[in-house]
Amino acid sequence: MALLADYILTHLVYLSILVIFAAGVVVLYGLAGVFTLGHQGFMAIGAYFAAGIACLMPAGGSPILAAALLVASVIAGVGGAVAGGLLLTGPSVRLRGDYMALATLAFAEILVALIRNTEALGGMRGLDVASLLPRASGSARLPILGTYALASVAMAAGAVLAVQRLGRSRLGIALRALRDDELAARSMGLENRRARLISFTMGAGLCGLAGCLYAHFSGHVSPRDFGFVQGAMVLLYVVLGGSTAVGTVCAVAVVYFLDEGLKLRCFGLLTGGLGDALVNWKDAILAGLLIALLAWRPYGLLTANRLRSEP
């Protein structure tokens, strides 16, 4: 039973981090209409800044120092990601569609390439993040894990609510208007630059926050964690979620369900040869299922509205 709880809590933390990351992308893509392929770059910035600050921790330092460094690392991570986002605001106004996607992708890949070649950042091998939080080991493992799970779920819920409120606010409506038809929106007096600035700040910030949490919880960061495929997966969640925060959470849940279901042989229902085939071919089957899902509901699992225009 303890092992099962362990398993659940660990997955809860990682899922929450994923939701926070996806919330950032909802702001960038869903609200502001930026076809972003580089959001994993923001997460990487958050993670590496957090890791860097954490490594300032001397061995056996006091808990107060640890707490201070923790706060500092989160601020640094989010701040760095926001700075990266601001960097992209300028170009994003001038580029459209596919070119925007390429530019963001280039941004993220340049970051990763730079990290890969910088020994001080651990290169391809990555950095171990010094534990600022108490380590979940030994007899205290479950309670500590439980606390982490609670905290991260709370943060994820907060992120989702915040993005939802943004979507319903004046700013959110303005963003969507600008996204759908810039000319018309501007003729109504809406200003592109300011809206973009805010959305990039918030979107990149959320991605950076997810990165910080990931660095601290998993204890290791490497360029492999922030690859193009991971970024595309999050975009998939947002698209399947109909570009809304709540929808994205549902999409994450559905994909997680499919992934784990296949891994656990359809929840123990299919045994023997067919079950084994499911496990071995899990990744291929999952990719096929996701393609089918997209073809079936390209505007989002919960959106039947075909009139909705896409960014």
């Binding site: 092992l3 849940a253 559905v254 997680y256 784990e260 656990l264």
Partner: peptide, 17 residues
């Protein structure tokens, strides 16, 4: 509904055990 999607696999792990 999506909570159900989250919980099922986790419980499924328990079934497997």
């Amino acid at each position: 509904g999506s909570l159900g999607f989250f919980l099922l696999p986790l419980l499924g792990a328990g079934c497997r055990q």
